[in-house]
Design a protein around this nucleic acid. Structure first.
Lengths: 197, 197
DNA sequence: CCGCTCATGTAACTGGTTACATGATTTA
DNA sequence: TAAATCATGTAACCAGTTACATGAGCGG
């Protein structure tokens, strides 16, 4: 009976994203990975050194990536590439069916506020929605130009992912416009909003 | 000069959500708050005891909520309500302008995968998208009925927040359908997708 | 020579997570 | 009477965060 070392726990979202980035950028340094996170205006992660360096290490001890140290003059850097196991782990992550919590994941800090809008008076509610629509529109414009940029750069899947961000940003705008119609004077509430899509 | 005690750090998202819930449910117990989180299929938080009890405590030491212990027979419970300061903190949180990171927040574990779809062959990509569309549709159906339920229950802002979840879920479906058109055989990629809204 | 970028890392902290522990009350 | 629910909490853990520290190489 071969020992089953450590009961391999699931990879964190950061570790999985790093795995994907190593696949894309190989051979690449942890520093390069950090920059990818920091460059994206829609990344969940900050790309902080304190997260990325330990994460690639964890992937290494699981032998999902392998490191090769390089020296140019007196400057050193550690380059990573996927191992065969790493490649398989990446494919497994990308293969359906997807865990329910990944499909159900949702978080919008503005929406969180809406649940408690009761705490505001009618005028303040209107200001809330007006500003939220405004800020959501600006955000949508930003992510649209960002995904367009990726398209122009020939980065197909970067573009397609970016399109997801665009759809989401526009959905937020539409939702807030719907909300505005409810919150505006002369409307009663529950009846008119929904359902023409 | 009056001492400025501790340099009041910002409230966490959980603490803010708890503050809102105490406003809604007052007088309410920490246990009731936990149930609100656990009942919602779209809450970011699990409502775990290890998070909620310490969170309400932190709000208490900041005197944003106040606790009153109650005894019925030999059963005790701690009831919370907002203080005036708590009420003001809630209103401040609900008042625009909203911090950029709250407007820009976005995270979709399926979308994260799409960025690395390059790692799959054409057939596997189609399976990816087909399954993702399917799961996203089921999710949309669930959150739709959930928000409808709130509407029927007369919970206006619960309904309106739920509508946000619906818009988001539908946006994911539409995005994945767009993605499918790109990934399907006979299409070249970057050209056809976007822009009719 | 100053400051920026490349490059690697650590340390202290934080705010979540799961799992556990306890006990009263209610319901099947 | 067994199990679910109400109700409180703690402990161990974990994976992020910011901030700091170090140093090579390069452009102005």
């Amino acid at each position: 009976m071969v020992a089953k070392s450590k009961a391999t726990r699931e990879l964190s979202r950061l570790e999985l994203a790093v795995l994907g980035l190593v696949f894309q950028g190989a051979p690449c340094t942890a520093y390069w990975i950090r920059r990818q996170f920091r460059a994206s205006p829609s990344s969940f992660f900050s790309g902080s050194a304190g997260a990325v360096y330990p994460a690639v290490r964890r992937l290494e001890v699981r032998s999902l990536v392998k490191a090769t140290t390089r020296r140019e003059g007196r400057r050193r850097s550690v380059e990573y590439r996927l191992t065969a196991r790493g490649r398989r782990a990446l494919e497994a992550w990308l293969s359906p069916p997807f865990p329910f919590e990944d499909v159900a994941f949702t978080m919008d800090p503005i929406r969180t506020r809406v649940y408690y809008l009761e705490a505001l008076g009618a005028g303040e509610r209107r200001r809330f929605v007006a500003e939220a629509v405004e800020q959501a529109r600006r955000r949508a414009a930003i992510v649209e130009s960002e995904s367009e940029e990726r398209r122009r750069a020939g980065d197909l899947f970067g573009y397609l992912g970016g399109r997801g961000v665009v759809h989401e940003a526009r959905a937020r705008v539409r939702w807030l416009e719907e909300l505005r119609r409810v919150v505006e004077p002369g409307t009663s509430g529950m009846s008119e909003a929904a359902e023409q899509e």
